[in-house]
Design a protein around this nucleic acid. Structure first.
Lengths: 290, 290
DNA sequence: CACGCACTGAAAAAATCTTTTCATGACAAC
DNA sequence: GTTGTCATGAAAAGATTTTTTCAGTGCGTG
């Protein structure tokens, strides 16, 4: 069967981009407090998610299950696997007493985001993306929104050292068409788009896809509309006790990807870094003399 | 109710003596691999135990439950309680990203960094910095190195929305003197400098200090030489299982500061954000028409 | 051996859950 | 505008589950 070894959570995540509004709402409800929230009857979970029972049926079938009972059977298996594996590992963060200081509240929120994100990220997806980014034959294009532009830049700066053929699209969309013009099939467009999704990014994604480029998307749990166009999507938790969303976990994923790519092509990268060091040295020397 | 705080398992045990043969058989079946064995339908568990469904109904009623659904609801609650405790949660995350996977190693490292950084950061320092950043009379200047430039930009982008008089110094040091020229006493220079400390940033810090500006420094545990010049220094742990350093915790501090500043001047900020929304809207409209 | 009593499960009845159908509304393309 | 497509939930239909009824069985007792 298609849903053999993957967890229900994985399946939901991998289909998340293709889900409709009500279905996303349902998926969120299921993933929140997963997998216990899926234990009840179809009526119960529909009510909890605020959707109708037909929506539940349609979604689980879309996910590849035969019907709700089939879906629930898988969930039961997972619960069983989780529970009957009582490995008592040391509790890493419980000592982090929920203080009242903003730093502590932030820390709690970030760790929660990290945990939930990691539960949701399919390692297979992660590895696929790392492999794509490692492929020197593909040109890489990075782009972000108003806030996330800095993340795109951070990612770009590292990848530029690790491998050739990387480009950072400026925040100004007027220059984008030129980049799209140069995209060939197999090229990668790495997009950062979190809520207050920017329509222009979706247009860019669409145009890039038409040029044959493949899209890797970093978005939030509610998923940018660009998810429908993306080959791989990272849905990252961004909630913080703040008027602003948190990019910490997104940066975490980015750094992990950087390491994964670097690691897979270490020999070449080492050479590049040496050369780069030399270049920096020369520049410094040049300035001193000048 | 009798079954208020006791677990279903307790209830079964306490009633075990009064159970009949078929019921004992059923009870054994339920306790074996408890509580997962009770997850299915009454038919399923009856079959598993080798008894009839009426036996199940009779037993659960004898145990004090209203009926099978009531019995199962209690079981679900217990499953939830078991799964939702932090230790079990960590197990789930770990199982999703097996121990050796880069994501998992990174997560461990980052949480460690976060804890160590929080232990080292004085909340008084944090609050002082937040207060300085909130002071509208001071001009803010942000600057970062090659890698940390993105962090400076991220910080700047947010602060620019929250308050006036903010500037981002470009990565190119040739434009810096002009900024220094304009600095007045009380102005703040926020510097990001982590290892492979950049000599130019130290020079900038020195020049700025001579102009009366106060310096806030984000650096790593080994501390940039600029620390000697800084009024406040955040020493952040940056170690990661990678050839690169991690900026995740630095970003964490930045976000916490953003929230602290925003929070202390919420009324004014709200107005600014509203206006900004309006401006974005206009821009969008303008583009559509154009 | 007959009787009473409690236990048990088959089968019917009742309740509930799951799936399908279909009307409506939103929205994009023309 | 008009048209077609898609998403959605109300409601009906269908399937399953849960409960009740009831007849059969085993067993101890007079």
């Amino acid at each position: 069967m298609t849903v053999a070894s993957k967890t229900v959570s994985d399946v939901i995540h991998s289909h998340f981009g293709t889900l409709t509004r009500a279905e996303k709402q349902l998926a969120e409800s299921l993933l929140d407090n997963y997998p216990v929230s899926g234990l009840g009857s179809i009526t119960t979970i529909a009510e909890n998610a605020g959707v109708s029972t037909p929506t539940v049926v349609r979604m689980v079938q879309k996910l590849g299950f035969k019907g709700y009972p089939d879906f629930q059977a898988h969930l039961h298996q997972e619960v069983e696997a989780t529970i009957s594996n009582p490995i008592a590992k040391h509790d890493r963060w419980a000592s982090n007493a929920p203080g009242t200081h903003i730093l502590n509240r932030f820390a709690d929120a970030i760790i929660d985001n990290l945990r939930q994100t990691l539960t949701g990220v399919d390692t297979a997806t992660f590895d696929s993306v790392a492999a794509l980014l490692s492929d020197r034959k593909r040109n890489l294009y990075f782009v972000g929104g108003r806030i996330t532009g800095a993340l795109a830049e951070y990612f770009f700066t590292h990848m530029q050292v690790i491998r050739p053929s990387t480009a950072l699209l400026s925040a100004n969309s007027s220059s984008w068409p030129q980049y799209v013009l140069n995209m060939s099939p197999g090229d990668l467009l790495i997009i950062f788009d979190i809520r207050r999704y920017e329509q222009e990014l979706v247009s860019l994604a669409s145009a890039a896809k038409n040029s044959g480029a493949e899209i890797i998307l970093f978005t939030d749990q509610w998923a940018s509309p660009a998810a429908k166009l993306a080959k791989h999507t990272f849905r990252v938790r961004i909630e913080a006790p703040s008027a602003w969303d948190s990019s910490v976990v997104t940066l975490f994923i980015v750094e992990a990807l950087i390491e994964a790519v670097q690691n897979s092509t270490w020999d070449e990268t080492k050479e590049r870094m040496k050369t780069l060091e030399g270049l920096f040295e020369q520049t410094r020397l040049f300035r001193k003399l000048g």
